[in-house]
Design a protein around this nucleic acid. Sequence first.
DNA 1: TGGCGGCATAACCATATGGTTATGATATGG
DNA 2: CCATATCATAACCATATGGTTATGCCGCCA
Lengths: 110, 110
Amino acid sequence: MMTNSPNSPATIDAQFKALSDGTRRALLEYLVREGEQSVHALTAISGVSQPMVSRHMAKLKRAALVTARRAGRETWYSARAKGLAPVVQWMAVYGALWSQRFTALEGIGE
Amino acid sequence: MMTNSPNSPATIDAQFKALSDGTRRALLEYLVREGEQSVHALTAISGVSQPMVSRHMAKLKRAALVTARRAGRETWYSARAKGLAPVVQWMAVYGALWSQRFTALEGIGE
DNA sequence: TGGCGGCATAACCATATGGTTATGATATGG
DNA sequence: CCATATCATAACCATATGGTTATGCCGCCA
């Protein structure tokens, strides 16, 4: 059953929106660096309350950036493989046109 | 005079936030594809009011994604060279870790 | 089985955000 | 010099968003 095109504007929107918050990005970065984590662990490193972590993770999940696995009373979140694909795709398309327009775009590190 | 590190969390935040709105992304995409445009022209293709276009462009400018050039009574906006650099940088770092974490699982589907 | 640990949801608040119309500043052209 | 075009800002509104504390559900274990 096709749910939704992975590169639809809605998905791009959701992903950019999900990535636009610093706290959420920090949570995601932690998952990427350290692997699967429980809400408990994520709360410990986030600086915000546990309910807020749950809500942030829900948003990341709706944006297809993480997956959740319930194990007993714990929920384990992981960065989702291919999660960044839609955004990467957008960057590839417009980054290409962009650099094509500005041939001086050599070192992206500024 | 160092204003602000181009890859500071604040800049990343501003860029992701700027890119998280569909209307704003459409404006930026138009600039990238068609080159420098006046507010008048951008309003014509945006589907929103002229004041809204001005505000969107202001936000894109604060995010260092576009530059503005005043010519008489017109303001011409362009996609800024190296504009996407901070976000691309972020994607490079975490996209790399990401795919590094999942290379073993590639092709399993999902 | 009763209490506690782990998580999600509800209720609430302040602020940010996207949108509008109205207004004001400034060039430009007749 | 006056009318108009171009743009930005102000004032306003509805909704979304990030945060909190309170609550409720459920699994674990002593």
